[in-house]
């Protein structure tokens, strides 16, 4: 029994660039989706048939789910390409990593000084580099879309809220105190942006890598029938983690395109904390 190491093992090099086993799995998923896209692109009719039905059903289902979170169809259509791609890619690569042979078929080679079995395939998300890349893409795209939707002043005053202090100067000492606290909260938001990337990437990596280790250990204890319930557990973990990743990305995108409780303050200058928008933004922007 060999517990897989936390870093993906390089199989061979192209130039100075090492090709790891997790990368191969990731590329299988990419090739699969490009293939599906090409097949879907051919023979497009008004009435969907066969694979078109599956694709249309999936997209329609995802669109209604996205619309439930964003609240309007325009933003749902804008966010679906990002969120849906992340969901499908993560889901497919998670489930691909459960196929028999992943982590058990390999080549004997020297790895860090010792000869050991290097598996040819390894779940793509059990490499922190991949999950970090997806998480960075998700958070950065939320900032870019937020910038485009709200404009630079509104977007940056979510983090360095100088505008709020200037607005409060007209309203009196209590409003200034609130604005100063909001300024500090805005600075904390900068830290939470970094925490978003960390928690998104490490959550997916931790779950998939722990699943791989769990399956390896169970195979080592008893190879007959014992891993089956854990395989089923990993099927569930795969779809739940894909959902969580996509939902969190969607929540970040939705919060980034929302004005930060500014409308309500202008309508009702006396209410310090408007109940509904504060509740939604504070639950989603942690």
């Amino acid at each position: 029994m060999m517990i897989p190491p936390a870093a993906a093992e390089p199989l061979f090099n192209i130039g100075a660039f090492p090709i790891t086993n997790a990368m191969i799995n990731g590329w299988i998923a990419v090739v699969f989706f490009v293939g599906v896209a090409f097949i879907a692109r051919r023979r497009v009719g008004l009435v969907p048939k066969g694979i078109h039905n599956v694709i249309e059903g999936t997209i329609e289902f995802m669109l209604t789910e996205v619309e439930k979170v964003t609240g309007d169809m325009k933003r749902a259509k804008q966010f679906l390409p990002i969120v849906g791609t992340i969901f499908l890619f993560v889901l497919f690569s998670n489930w691909l990593g459960l196929l028999p042979g992943t982590g058990s078929i390999g080549i004997w080679a020297t790895h860090e000084g010792a000869i050991e079995l290097i598996p040819l395939l390894r779940p793509a998300a059990s490499d922190l580099n991949l999950t970090l890349a997806i998480a960075l893409f998700a958070v950065i795209s939320s900032h870019v879309i937020g910038l485009m939707a709200l404009g630079p002043v509104s977007h940056f005053s979510k983090f360095v809220n100088v505008r709020g202090i200037f607005r409060a100067l007209k309203k009196g000492p209590m409003a200034i105190l609130v604005a100063v606290i909001e300024f500090g909260v805005g600075l904390l938001e900068i830290i939470s942006e970094i925490a978003k990337v960390l928690s998104l990437s490490l959550r997916l990596f931790g779950n998939i890598f722990a699943g791989e280790v769990l399956l390896t250990v169970m195979l080592g204890i008893l190879a007959y029938a014992l891993p089956i319930p854990f395989m089923f557990l990993e099927l569930l973990v795969g779809i739940i983690q894909a959902t969580v990743f996509a939902m969190l990305t969607l929540a970040y995108l939705t919060v980034a395109t929302q004005e930060h409780e500014e409308h309500e303050e202008e309508q009702e200058p006396h209410s310090v904390s408007p109940p509904t928008p504060l509740a939604t933004s504070s639950t989603l922007s942690t």
Partner: peptide, 13 residues
């Protein structure tokens, strides 16, 4: 799921 994810984030730290 979302609130579970935020609770889980602390374990990730």
């Amino acid at each position: 799921l979302l609130s579970m994810a935020f609770a889980e984030a602390i374990a990730i730290y």
